[in-house]
């Protein structure tokens, strides 16, 4: 009887030991230098698709205490469990820059990614990057925006698409202008898009699109506006998760 108990105990211990997690080892290339700051070079605030790689790579730069670009420092990229980086740890190149490609999760919304590098004392200095994933609605909104809205609401003019922004006496708001757009409720935006500027005592230069676009398309546009707004749009009213 005792023998069996002993064997069972041994097996049990073995199972427990096997299940214990190994501490996450610091993997990746070995740094030859330690920086004092991480700054973004490019690749922030992109709009990607669910489960897809972002269109542009993320590029961050590591600087030393004097603010000069530092080659040979290691930069580790991290995000949620559904974010993947290729590669996740990079040594900065001769111009102090580390480049990676990020693949975001399947869920639309805002993703906060972190790029961090250890300083000489081994403490991590990090930089946060915000990336967006557009779901079906936001993607549809993005396309409607490109067709109907961006010609006036985007001040940037290119030979392919000349902007009408400068020609308007009352300047339209760009959709990234969160300070203004976030103050408008969903029903305000619906009224503005469907019935034109005068619906909210604004400029008649904004025409009514309520007949041209259907309800779902107006909602899609609003979803897109909410996605790209900076600072981010926070839904007011019910605060979820806080009782």
């Amino acid at each position: 009887m005792k023998r069996y108990a002993g064997i069972a105990l041994l097996i049990g211990l073995g199972v427990v030991a096997g299940c214990r997690r190994h501490p996450a080892a610091e993997t990746g290339p070995k740094p030859t230098a330690y920086g004092a700051a991480v700054v973004e070079s490019s690749g922030g605030k992109q709009v990607g698709e669910p489960g897809g790689a972002l269109p542009q790579p993320l590029v961050v730069q590591v600087n030393d205490a004097q603010g000069n670009a530092l080659p040979g420092a290691v930069v580790r990229f991290a995000g949620g469990s559904d974010v993947a980086f290729s590669p996740a740890a990079v040594l900065t190149d001769s111009s102090g820059q580390a480049t990676t490609t990020a693949t975001l999760g399947d869920t639309p919304g805002r993703y906060t990614l972190t790029a961090s590098t250890p300083d000489a004392a081994g403490k991590a200095i990090s930089l946060q990057l915000t990336e967006l994933v557009a779901g079906y609605q936001e993607q549809l909104g993005e396309r409607l925006n490109a067709v109907y809205c961006s010609r006036c609401h985007n001040a940037e003019s290119t030979p392919q698409q000349v902007s009408n922004y400068d020609n308007l006496d009352v300047k339209p708001h760009t959709f990234t202008d969160g300070d203004t757009m976030n103050k408008l409720s969903d029903s305000d935006l619906t009224a503005l898009i469907s019935h034109g500027g005068p619906a909210l005592n604004r400029s008649a230069l904004m025409p009514a699109y309520g007949t041209t676009l259907n309800k779902a398309e107006v909602q899609a546009l609003i979803a897109y506006i909410r996605l790209v707004s900076d600072p981010p749009f926070e839904r007011t009213g019910v605060h979820y998760g806080k009782q």
Partner: peptide, 12 residues
């Protein structure tokens, strides 16, 4: 704003 598998389906 909840984790999967409980999140609402995006509007389609």
């Amino acid at each position: 704003d909840v984790p999967q598998p409980f999140r609402t389906h995006p509007p389609i």
